[in-house]
């Protein structure tokens, strides 16, 4: 398959949460474990707590928490929810333009 492995692009994620709301806690845990399992050293996971920085929600038009943004590589994706549907999350994060 991918024998001559190109340096895979780094996965850049930003997760918006709201303090220790149950869904937010779940999302953080799910995001971390997914990244560890599938993207090991090739990822950046940025976590933004809207309870601390509420106005940051405006920048990325965050409506619900938790929201996970896949910023790079393209295409950008927006995943909402506590990320319990790991299959769905993985699929989304793995979809990359060539």
């Amino acid at each position: 398959m991918v024998t001559a492995r190109r340096a895979e692009p780094r996965l850049h994620l930003r997760l918006y949460i709201a303090g220790n709301a149950p869904n937010s806690l779940l999302a953080v845990a799910n995001a971390k474990s997914l990244c560890e399992e599938h993207f090991a050293e090739r990822h950046v996971l940025e976590i933004v707590d809207l309870l601390e920085q509420p106005l940051r929600a405006l920048a990325d038009a965050i409506i619900v928490t938790p929201t996970l943004l896949k910023l790079a590589p393209l295409p950008a994706y927006r995943v909402i929810g506590n990320l319990n549907d790991r299959k769905q999350v993985l699929l989304t994060l793995s979809t990359n333009d060539e």
Binding site: I17, P54, I80, N82
Partner: peptide
């Protein structure tokens, strides 16, 4: 429309904003 839903969410963040 491209938003993917992967689990339950809430409005805590929005209300904070």
């Amino acid at each position: 429309p491209e938003t993917v839903k992967a689990g339950e969410f809430d409005l805590v963040g929005m209300l904070a904003l």
